[in-house]
Each structure stands twice: as C-alpha cells, then as structure tokens.
C-alpha cells in the first residue's frame, strides 16, 4: 500500500530522511516513534506529498509520489491526514468541516454528504456538536472532528501526525479510542505517536527512527520487551519512565 525504497530528503544541508526503505501492507497499522527531530513527521508528510523527496522511490496505492504523471490531488483524496494541531477550518461548523471535501472533491450531493457526516460525527461521539464552530470545541473534540473529516472521504490510508501531542492529558484517551476503532475496522494506518499503549493495542509494527534513519522495526512485543539497539533502549527508557 505504501512503499519507500531508498528515499532521501534534505532541508538545505540537513539530511532529514536517510535512505528510508519501508513497506506498509493493506490493513496494516504501523506506529512510527522516535525522539523529536528524528524525521518521523517528515516521513509521513512525504506519503501524501506535503513534503517532497529528493531521491528514491515512494509508491502509494500504486502511484509514484512526486512523479509528474501522478495526479497528487486525486491521490490525496484517498489519504486521510490528521494533524497535531487539528487544522479545522475555523469559519465552518463541525459538519461543514466534515462535508467540505466529500461535496467538492468527491462531488457527492450535499444531502448525502451531510447524512454521512452526521453519522461519522455521531460515531466519534459528537452527535450534539454538528453546528458548533471549532472555537467552541475542546482540543479532543476538535481532533475527533478532524478524524471524522478524513473518514468522510472514505480514504484507503490514514496518516496521523502526533494526533494527541497538543491535547490535555484527560482528552488523549477519547481521541485514541476513536483511532483504535478506525484501526479495528481494517484501515491502513501510519501513526506518528508516543502513545505506546495505542501501539501495543493495535499496531502490527513499530518503527523506531533516530536522526533521519529507521533504526529498528518490529512487532510491538519485540520492540517494547526486547529493544535491540542502544538508541531505542534509551528512548524507551525516557518515555516509559513516567
């Protein structure tokens, strides 16, 4: 579904992705973790072309990302992206946020899109917030709207870029619960997160990155109980201590 083959990326002189080779199968949930600045956000932002790569091959859903013949707008419609800072449209209600792309990109009739949108908002526990503006919602509620906004496009892949990092602690679990239910429905997911409970529960694989490279990759059990490198041991020591 997603395949990196020897992908490199530089920000000026900074080598942010080093020779990344990684493949994500359909219905697989991959958690990407690592210290800040390790390139994990950049990695998933490459998947839908929010960042460009310099060399190597990146194939998503059978299309080469960055290739001039690939219609990135079309490809992006198949990929949901959940941001750390939610990025809901502040001038639109929750329901309008959710239905915007289905109506304009998928060309679904407004009434049908609104019905699907209401259903999804109800599913993420926001049945009473259809007409609320983002500024009237808590962080956790906003992030759940953002997830519903992606789901309403019926994407083939969902990418999550630290979806709970900007949330107050008491709101993290309401967002994680939604993510777990999406994973359990068989969505192909790449999730950048430090929520190791989430990784243990639904991930098939944990990828550990440091300084732009994939250092280690394995099942959650392997990774948490028996990290193979000093760097992953040091990292786990820091995030699991409290």
């Amino acid at each position: 579904m997603i395949e990196f083959r020897g992908v490199n990326k530089w920000f000026g002189a900074l080598h942010v992705l080093k020779d990344i080779t990684l493949s994500v199968e359909p219905r697989e949930v991959v958690v990407v973790c690592g210290p800040s600045g390790s390139g994990k956000s950049t990695l998933i932002r490459c998947v839908n072309g929010l960042e460009s790569t310099r060399d190597g091959v990146l194939v998503v859903d059978g299309h080469r990302v960055g290739d001039p013949t690939t219609d990135m707008t079309e490809l992006r419609a198949e990929i949901g992206f959940v941001f750390q800072s939610f990025n809901l449209y502040p001038h639109k209600t929750a329901l309008e946020n959710v239905t915007l792309a289905p109506i304009h990109v998928r060309k679904i009739a407004r009434s049908a899109a609104e019905e699907a949108g209401r259903e999804l908002l109800a599913r993420v526990g926001l049945a009473d917030k259809f007409n609320a503006y983002p500024s009237e919602l808590s962080g956790g509620q906003q992030q759940r709207v953002a997830i519903a906004r992606c789901l309403c496009m019926r994407p083939k892949i969902m990418l999550f870029d630290e979806p709970t990092s900007a949330l107050d602690p008491e709101m993290i679990s309401e967002v994680l619960d939604v993510m777990v239910s999406v994973a359990e429905e068989g969505m192909t997911m790449m999730v950048v997160t430090h929520e190791m409970g989430f990784a243990r529960r639904v991930a098939q694989r944990v990828v550990f990155m440091d300084a732009g490279a994939i250092v280690e990759s394995g099942t959650p059990e392997e990774f948490f109980s028996n990290p193979r490198t000093d760097r992953s041991r040091a990292f786990l020591g820091k995030i699991l201590r409290h």
Binding site: L50, T73, R76, E78, F81, S85, Y89, L100, H104, C150
Partner: peptide, 27 residues
Amino acid sequence: VPTGQVEAALASGLSRWQRMRQVVLPQ
C-alpha cells in the same frame, strides 16, 4: 492564513481553486 489551513485543504484533495475559494479566501 495559517499554513496548516492550506495543508489541511491540500491533504483532503481540494484543487487549487477550491482551496482558495473554500478555505483561504473566507479567512
């Protein structure tokens, strides 16, 4: 208009004009 707004619109598959018309210009 914050970059995150454009990125969200971009990520959901809106075309250039749709991003302008639906997301950027109203804000």
